[in-house]
Amino acid sequence: MSADLQEHYDKIYRYCYFKVGNATLAEDLTQETFLKYFSQNSYIEHGKKLAYLYVIARNLCIDTFQKKQFEELKEDVATVEPFERVELGIAIRQVLKKLPEQEQELLLLRFVNGLAVGEITAITGLSRFAVYRKTSSALSTLKRLMKEDDFS
């Protein structure tokens, strides 16, 4: 899992950043998540599904609740992205703020972190049906709002 570990670190970090809006705090929470995940005695013998990593992260974020705000787009965010993507990203970011938080979370988990629907149900506690419904609703709202802003 060593190479994957790097990838999972990034994903959890992204998730925490979405939740708390602060880079340093997000990283602290990410590291705490990993430490907790590996320290559970039951992990040692039975293993835990990956979704559990997110559950831990989620709980930690809730405990450290802070009003989230998207930080200004800084130089170091987009490293090698082509300009159009960055521009689109900024546009989407504005639009995302208008969606309910749960729908934003679903979009992140499903399309950015690439989790399967089954895993998402374990993390969010929603039913499969609810996950499908809300995700597709989020997408159509997103598309609609994007058209309105005339950016897509």
Partner: peptide
């Protein structure tokens, strides 16, 4: 891709 960019966080 736009979504991915939108959710991008500062480099850890």
């Amino acid at each position: 891709m736009g979504l991915q960019s939108a959710f991008e966080a500062p480099i850890p």
